[in-house]
Every structure is written in C-alpha cells, then in structure tokens.
Amino acid sequence: MIKTYRKIATISAEQFDGSDKQIKKYGIRPPYPQEIGTITDEEWRPLLPTKEGLMTCHVGDWVATGINGEHWPIADDIFKKTYVEVKEK
C-alpha cells in the first residue's frame, strides 16, 4: 500500500548570487578549466561539491546545508514550493 509522507526537517539555506564570497565559501568551481575572460555568463555553470559529487548550481538557486555540513543546490522554484522560512523568536 502506497502512503503519502512529508518532510518536517529544518534546513539552513542561502540563495546563490554568483559572488566571489559565496564561490569561496562553498568551494564552487567552473565545470572545466577556462582562462579568465573566455567564458560568457550564459556559458558559466558553477559546480557545487556535494556528497554525491559535483552538481550544477545556477545563480538564483539555493545552497542548502545539512546537519553534517554537507551542501546541495535546490532550484528556486522547487525551494519556494518546499520550504517556508522559520521566524526567529
């Protein structure tokens, strides 16, 4: 019998803006070696190291952080459908 479940976990997440600060913070790197200035913004697909390997992380995606410090990208539309901000007390 198939049952329906929902997640109740709380996560930390930050929206990726493509800044050098976030690139350094999350260890994001380009998908292949390129000389600076030879790749356009449309071609640049940053890769985020995750437990499953490198995953594409677009500007506007959310970088979630798990309880063990692991990171994974979540597309903005999926993030907004799945998570609600927790208000601090």
Score class of each variant (00 low, 15 high):
M1H: 08
M1L: 07
I2Q: 10
I2D: 09
I2A: 11
T4V: 13
T4S: 09
Y5E: 07
Y5M: 05
K7E: 10
I8W: 06
I8S: 13
I8L: 13
I8H: 14
A9H: 12
A9M: 12
T10K: 15
I11F: 13
S12R: 15
S12E: 15
A13P: 03
A13D: 01
E14R: 15
Q15L: 03
F16Y: 13
F16V: 02
D17M: 10
D17I: 09
G18D: 06
G18Y: 03
G18F: 04
S19L: 04
D20P: 08
K21Y: 12
K21G: 09
K21S: 14
I23F: 06
K25D: 11
K25F: 05
K25W: 04
Y26E: 07
Y26L: 03
G27D: 09
G27A: 03
G27C: 03
I28R: 02
R29A: 12
R29T: 13
R29P: 00
P30G: 12
P30R: 06
P31M: 10
Y32Q: 12
Y32W: 09
Q34I: 01
Q34K: 02
Q34A: 08
E35H: 05
E35W: 02
I36E: 14
G37H: 07
G37T: 05
G37K: 05
G37A: 04
T38H: 05
T38I: 00
T38K: 08
T38W: 00
I39D: 11
I39N: 11
D41K: 11
E42Q: 13
E42W: 06
E43Q: 15
W44R: 08
W44L: 09
W44E: 08
W44F: 12
R45M: 10
P46H: 00
P46K: 00
P46Y: 00
L47E: 07
L47T: 03
L47A: 04
P49R: 04
P49W: 02
P49I: 03
T50I: 07
T50N: 09
K51W: 07
K51Y: 11
L54P: 01
M55Q: 15
C57S: 02
H58N: 08
H58T: 00
H58I: 00
V59M: 06
V59C: 06
G60E: 02
G60R: 03
D61H: 07
T65N: 04
T65F: 02
G66N: 15
G66A: 15
G66S: 15
G66L: 13
I67L: 15
I67Q: 14
G69N: 02
G69E: 01
G69S: 00
G69L: 03
E70H: 07
E70F: 01
W72N: 06
P73E: 07
P73R: 04
P73W: 10
P73A: 06
I74G: 00
A75H: 11
D76E: 14
D76N: 14
D77Y: 07
F79R: 01
T82H: 03
Y83K: 06
E85S: 13
E85Y: 10
E85R: 14
E85V: 13
V86I: 11
K87I: 15
E88K: 11
K89S: 10
